[in-house]
Amino acid sequence: MIEFINIRRSFSIGDQRVTALHDINLNIAAGDYVSIMGPSGSGKSTLLNLIGLLDRPTSGTYKLDSGDVTALNDAQQARVRSEKIGFVFQSFHLVPRLTAAMNIELPLILAGIPAAERKLRVAQLLANYGLTDRASHRPDQLSGGQRQRVAIARATSMHPAVLLADEPTGNLDQTTGREVIKLLEQLSLQNVTLILVTHDPALAGRASRQLRMVDGQIISQTMS
C-alpha cells in the first residue's frame, strides 16, 4: 500500500542544511494499524506529511497503491489526497465559521460531489459519530471530543484508504482521548490503513505495528 524507498527530506535553515529524514525505507500494508513514537524533532511529523503528500521528499521514491506519487504535479497530488488520504489533526483544524455539518461536507464539496448525495452522506456520518443533534453548531459551540469527532467524520467522508492522525488526543482529556482512539481503531478494522503519531507510549502500544524514531531514522519496529 505505502512504500518508501530511500526517502530523504532535508531543509535549508539559513545557510545550513538540516536533514529531517535519513533515507527511510518503509512498507505499510493495506489495513495496517501503525503507530509512530519518538521525541520532538525526531522527524515523525515530517514522515506523516510525506505520506500525506503535503510535503515532497528531497530524494527517494514514494509509491502509493504501487503507483509512483513523487512525480505527480500539484493538482494530481491534490486529487490523490482528496480520494485516498484522510487527516486528523491535534488541533482539529475545523473551519470556525462553518457548522459541524458543513465542516464534514467540505471534502465532498471540494471533490465536486452533487449536493443531494452530499446531504445523504453527511447525515449518515453525523449519525455514525453521534453528532446529529450538533449538526448546526459551530466549532466554538462544541466540546473538544465533539470537535475531534467532527474532524474524524470529515476525514472519513471521502472513504479514504489511509487515515493519518497526528497526535489526535493531544488536546483532549484522557477519557475523551480514549473514545477518539476507539473510533479510529474501528475504522482500522474496516480495512482503513491507520497511521498514528503520538507521544503516549500507552497509546502507541495499542497499534499492531509500532515504529520508534530518533533523529530522522526509524530505530526500532515492534509487531504485536
Binding site: A78, R79, H93, L110, M158
Partner: peptide
C-alpha cells in the same frame, strides 16, 4: 492561513 492549509490537505489544488 490555517484554513488554506486545511483546504489543501483536504485535496483542493492551487487553482481551486
Amino acid at each position: 492561513v490555517q484554513e488554506i492549509g486545511l483546504l489543501k490537505a483536504l485535496g483542493a489544488p492551487a487553482v481551486k
